[in-house]
Design a binder for these strands. Sequence first.
RNA 1: GACCCCAUCGUCUAGAGGCCUAGGACACCGGCCUUUCACGCCGGCAACACGGGUUCGACUCCCGUUGGGGUCGCCA
Length: 472
Amino acid sequence: MPRLLKTRFAPSPTGLLHLGNVRTALFNYLLARRENGVFLLRIEDTDAMRGHEKYTEALQADLRWLGLVWSEGPAVGGALGPYLQSERSAIYQRYFAELEANGLAYPCFCSEHELNIARKTALAAGRPPRYSGKCRQLAPEERLARFAAGTPATLRFHVEDGGRVEFEDGVRGSQVFETSEIGDFIIRRSDGTPAFFFCNAIDDALMEVTLVVRGEDHLTNTPRQILLLQALGLPLPAYAHIALVVGADGAPLSKRTGSRSVQELREAGFLARAVNNYLARLGHTYENNQLLGLDALAAEFSARRLHRAPARFDEQHLHHWQHEAVRHASTDELCDWVTPAARALMPERSRDAFLEAVRGNVLFPPDTERWAKVVFGDTLEIAHDAHQAIEDAGKEFFDIARRAIEKHGGDFKALSGMVQHLTGRSGKALFQPLRAALTGALDGPEMARLLPLMGEERARARLIRWSNGAGG
RNA sequence: GACCCCAUCGUCUAGAGGCCUAGGACACCGGCCUUUCACGCCGGCAACACGGGUUCGACUCCCGUUGGGGUCGCCA
């Protein structure tokens, strides 16, 4: 009988969520959703660093913004909580005690400094930088003496040499690791807090997570967690390690290579649907090239369709999905999305028509504001090339244009037709100066849609400005 | 350094031995639409990292080389 699929996202609130993080969250969400399973959120705030509450809140806001709702975790609860690791100390203590009682873990008195030196010497000598196991040999009385002296101690999990750990990775296939390559690792820090390898694995088991989808950076750490879980007799989840996202230069994602936090993307005006569509296709493939909603994204998501090589972040692709998202957004959505200044400029009754007119030509809210100013604003900025086009057309041209607008109002086709007829100009020579004087630019949305929104008075004034002034 | 993972157009990718004259998307270029530009629509350019095998046949399998990524933390 197959267990209900339960995936999880277990971020550490040490900073804002970025593209790589949130992609992992998305994949977990999509998998759970496709199977009607559970998507769980757990906050790994063990080091209790300052500011973590701020980030805990921020990460939940980011997830909600993207629509990646969790059905178990902080804020929504669940039977297997608490879902903040900082509230689970008592649980961890039990397992530490069990491990120690069974002789599977031992206190280590080596100082950080000492360990660093050992690691460096090992590396320099071409040996693997693995813990020597020094404190494992300590006699009981020696341990007692150190404790009595107040020497700080960590707790190490003992990994026996000569074994092997095998598991099936959901995206990489079967994996085999020798235990001799692992070494004893720390599961409790000297300040008593649990280390990542430990609480992460324990919680997955205790919270009944059935599938762990995480970055490839955890692949070679997986055998440690399996060993731990086996030592404790806890159930093992299935694992799937996804390739990491790298920057345009192929190096790990950094601010330098365009990696931005989800918060920054949202503030820049990216639409959640654009981010989701981009991320779901980064290292994964869909037959459908249309903009998809989360449910459609989930329906065709498959771990088998995940590419195993690191994927490069490409801003152009993100922009493509942003363009699609803007194109398909409802006018209500767009109205919420534009800048407050643009919103203030748009008259209620021409709001929808305006948004429909410009949506194909805008990517971000400031772009919309630009057109709102052009269409509804009183002053007009004229770009250099536009100014040139106006001058080239000459004053007589605008005398005629003025008369045309007085006759035809917001009917751009009739207006331009009349100007063509009376000036003999057509094509570029006809439309560019008209567009330049009316909008201050040589490119933009269809004039036939902008002019009626602009209103006859505003348009007329803009044409008169370049004419001989007669009839002002 | 050891171990692990990976390698198809510039980028994201399809491809599970003959369906490949290597398909799609983004970008780019061209055309159409629009009496202008943009939007939209249509089309084009463009890749199997290299070297050995295995096979009647290799993008697909094996080995090596090169390149990239990851892990080996009292970070998660």
